[in-house]
């Protein structure tokens, strides 16, 4: 996968294709962490109030707030 200009580790199994899973199809899940993450992802793609996504990483938080409004 990566050229001789990369680290070049090999031996990983095939990558599961998660793009075939729809966010709405994953609604009935019995995995509490994934369920919470999916609820936030649905908010990102829904037609509800816009959620601004901030790219700068050298500022905590890990949620979608860019700070206090």
């Amino acid at each position: 996968m990566c050229s001789d200009k990369s680290a070049g580790a090999t031996g990983l199994p095939e990558l599961p294709d998660l793009l075939t899973l729809g966010l709405s199809d994953l609604r009935a899940l019995d995995h509490p962490v994934l369920s919470e993450v999916l609820a936030e992802l649905r908010a990102r793609v829904s037609g509800g109030p816009a959620v601004t996504l901030w790219t700068f990483d050298e500022f905590a938080p890990g949620d979608e707030s860019g700070g206090v409004a």
Partner: peptide, 12 residues
């Protein structure tokens, strides 16, 4: 997880 599922994501 967002990126693997094809959802919008934001991180450097």
């Amino acid at each position: 997880i967002a990126l693997l599922l094809g959802a919008p994501a934001a991180t450097e």
